[in-house]
Nucleic acid binder design. Structure first.
Length: 241
DNA sequence: AATTGTTGCAACCGCTGTCAT
DNA sequence: GATGACAGCGGTTGCAACAAT
C-alpha cells in the first residue's frame, strides 16, 4: 500500500548490481518477473532497458568505428529505422545507441547538407542570421526535425573518414568495471536449478566476452540477409571503459 | 571567469507483436 | 477464436558534460 511506487530515473549502482544478479538467476527474458522478485520497484521494461543498453556484458562502449559507421549507413539505407534489426548486425551495439548515433550524426549531416545544398535560398548572405526557415544555425528543436532521417531513404555517403567526435563521457558515479568486479566477487555461477538459458551466463571479466551465449536475444545473427559482411576482423574487441 | 549554446547519452512512453490461457 | 499479459521496438525527452563566446 505504500512501498510500491515505481522508481524512475537514473539507476544506482546498487540497483544495477541487483539487476545483474537477478538476470544471472533467471535469465534475460522474464523481465516482469525479475522486476517483481528483485524488489527493485522498477518496471520490467525499465529493467530490460537497463540491461540491454547498459549492463549487458558484451556491450562495446565508446565511439563507433568507421566500419560500424558505414555499416549503419548501409543498413539504414536498406531497412530504415529498424534499429534493433540494425543493431543485430553490430555486435556490442544497442539499438538505442545506434539510434542516438544516427540522430546526432544525421542531424549534423543534415545541417551540413542544408548549408551546402541550399545556396539558392540563402544566396549570398547565407551566413547565419537570415534563417527564416529555421534549420540553419539555429539549434534544431529536438522534437520536430525528424523527417530527414526518418526512413532510410538517404544515399550512402561513405563518410568513412569522418570521425565522429563524441568523446565518451565516461560513467558518472561508478563504472561498469566496478560493478562487474563487484559481481565477480559476490556471485558464484548461480545455476542451480532455475532458469532457462540464463545459466551459462558469464560476466565479461569472468570469461570470454563473446556473444555466443546470447542465443537469440540481441545480437544473434540474422536470418535474412545473411550476406551482410561483418566489419570486425577482431570480432570481439570490447572496449572497456 | 561566467554565460550560453550544443552535443551525447540514458531513460521513459506509447504502440505493436507474440504467446499463453 | 478471443482475451490478456508480457516482451520488444521506435520515438521522444531530460539532463549533464563540453565547447564556444
Amino acid at each position: 500500500m505504500m512501498q510500491d511506487e515505481i522508481r524512475k530515473g537514473p539507476w544506482t549502482e546498487k540497483e544495477d548490481i541487483l539487476l545483474i544478479n537477478f538476470v544471472h538467476l533467471f535469465g534475460d527474458r522474464r523481465w516482469d518477473f525479475i522486476a517483481k522478485v528483485s524488489g527493485l520497484n522498477r518496471t520490467g521494461k525499465s529493467c530490460r532497458l537497463r540491461w540491454v543498453n547498459y549492463l549487458h556484458p558484451g556491450l562495446k562502449r565508446g565511439k563507433m568505428t568507421p566500419q560500424e559507421e558505414r555499416l549503419v549507413l548501409e543498413l539504414h539505407a536498406k531497412w530504415g529505422n529498424r534499429w534493433s534489426r540494425i543493431a543485430r548486425k553490430l555486435p556490442g551495439r544497442t539499438d538505442n545507441e545506434i539510434k542516438n548515433y544516427w540522430r546526432t550524426h544525421m542531424r549534423k549531416k543534415a545541417q551540413e547538407r542544408k548549408g551546402a545544398m541550399s545556396p539558392s535560398l540563402s544566396s549570398s548572405n547565407c551566413s547565419s542570421s537570415s534563417n527564416t526557415t529555421t534549420v540553419n544555425s539555429s539549434p534544431l528543436p529536438r522534437t520536430g526535425e525528424t523527417s530527414f532521417y526518418d526512413t532510410g531513404g538517404l544515399e550512402q555517403v561513405a563518410l568513412a573518414g569522418k570521425n565522429s567526435e563524441a568523446v565518451q563521457g565516461g560513467e558518472k558515479g561508478y563504472s561498469m568495471d566496478d560493478i562487474w568486479k563487484d559481481i565477480e566477487n559476490t556471485i558464484e555461477p548461480v545455476c542451480d536449478g532455475f532458469s532457462e538459458k540464463g545459466c551459462n551466463f558469464s560476466c565479461p571479466s569472468l570469461a570470454s566476452p563473446s556473444w555466443d551465449y546470447f542465443p537469440d536475444t540481441l545480437w544473434g545473427f540474422g536470418e535474412e540477409e545473411g550476406k551482410i559482411f561483418l566489419p570486425y576482423d577482431d570480432g570481439t574487441t570490447i572496449l572497456t571503459g
